[in-house]
Design a binder for these strands. Structure first.
Lengths: 143, 143
DNA sequence: CACTTATTGATAATGATTTTCATTACCGAA
DNA sequence: TTCGGTAATGAAAATCATTATCAATAAGTG
């Protein structure tokens, strides 16, 4: 469904729709957690055997360029990707299972304004990520 | 001055104080922008010729472990480090010159509480970075 | 269906980080 | 101050992730 939208986006931007891209797109679009290129490769090969890792890198590049996916930054590393939410959204990551939730939260306006005044900077962008435990991991956590 | 504090921290945690570490510590402690391992290497070699790149990596590892430095995340890459501010601080990066400013900003309390309620997550940490232009780059920017 | 050309996968090349190991030099104890 | 155990070092090699090369393939327009 949304995978079709992604493919349409690719097509409209002059890229061809191939079996390899189909597999990668479906894999990422269905995932609720951030995936590294190798994980995308492993998972997508179940849909398209002949897939090469290099093609995964190239497809990720294009999807990122079209803002269909976004990079996820974590203490352990920053080479994982997840479907980009629509509009301006931030990420909330479960530290235990890696589940990702999106949220909107632009109460940052007032914060950035006050920081701008204090520091003299002109503030253009912000990155906000929250970390915690998701509902499932909370309830299964009973020690 | 603060470099001495870092060295003391290293010592108190069972690490030895060496010429190599002195050079790395002084380099980072004096820098107002994020430095990659290679840059740290280049700059530190002016203080300590015999320094090896491997030692830079090992020293960064220990400084990070002791929370004396922190990793800086950027679109281009996340392998740069900067002195960690005291207490809970966030980063404000100049997109043009790389200058880093710190700020405190825990008006996030209310935001995180509302997100927690909405998502069911228990929120533990947050990670916020701002990007923009510093005072200098703003004034030199006259096209 | 045919043709142009983007895309592909395998391989090789690169770049960053880690491991290995013999040598060096901290630094606490004598 | 010297001594000695041992952490720390640098050079070289190994590993891992990412990028470039290139001939073969296949998407999609006409």
């Amino acid at each position: 469904m949304s995978a079709e939208f992604w493919l349409t986006q690719l097509h409209e931007n002059g890229y061809r729709i191939t079996g390899a891209r189909r597999a990668v797109v479906e894999t990422i679009e269905k995932s609720t957690r951030a995936l590294t290129p190798v994980k995308v490769y492993d998972m997508s090969r179940k849909r398209y055997r002949a897939l090469g890792l290099v093609t995964v890198y190239r497809t990720l590049e294009k999807l990122e360029e079209l803002h269909l996916i976004q990079r996820v930054h974590q203490p352990m590393g920053c080479q994982a990707f997840i479907s980009a939410g629509h509009g301006h959204q931030h990420l909330l990551l479960c530290k235990k299972c890696g589940q990702v939730a999106f949220f909107e939260g632009d109460d940052l306006e007032s914060l950035t304004k006050s920081i701008a005044k204090k520091t003299g900077y002109q503030i253009q962008d912000h990155w906000l990520q929250l970390f915690g435990l998701c509902k499932n991991c909370l309830s299964n956590q009973q020690a």
